[in-house]
């Protein structure tokens, strides 16, 4: 947990200065979104909250609805 947060803070420290210096708002927003998304997922994983894999949705969709399977 703590290690994870430290790692993400380090990442922020590395990338953020160049993003801010770049000056383009679009990059900053995109970076913020990607970073938050990535952080949330990692945090959920670290907290051992079960996240349903998107591939498993596909799996169920194919097996139960389309019945496409060998």
């Amino acid at each position: 947990m703590i290690i994870l947060i430290i790692v993400f803070i380090i990442m922020l420290m590395i990338d953020l200065p160049s993003v801010i210096r770049n000056g383009k708002k679009k990059i900053l927003i995109a970076y913020g979104l990607i970073f938050t998304f990535s952080f949330t997922i990692c945090l959920l994983l670290a907290l051992e909250i079960n996240i349903k894999s998107p591939l498993m949705f596909v799996d169920e969709f194919y097996k139960n609805i389309l019945h496409f399977s060998y």
Partner: peptide, 20 residues
């Protein structure tokens, strides 16, 4: 894409674990 390398890398690591 350079600023995105590290967050995306972290995302990929997480994704590879929750995948299956």
């Amino acid at each position: 894409f350079r600023p995105f390398i590290l967050p995306v890398a972290a995302l990929l690591v997480a994704y590879s674990f929750i995948m299956f």
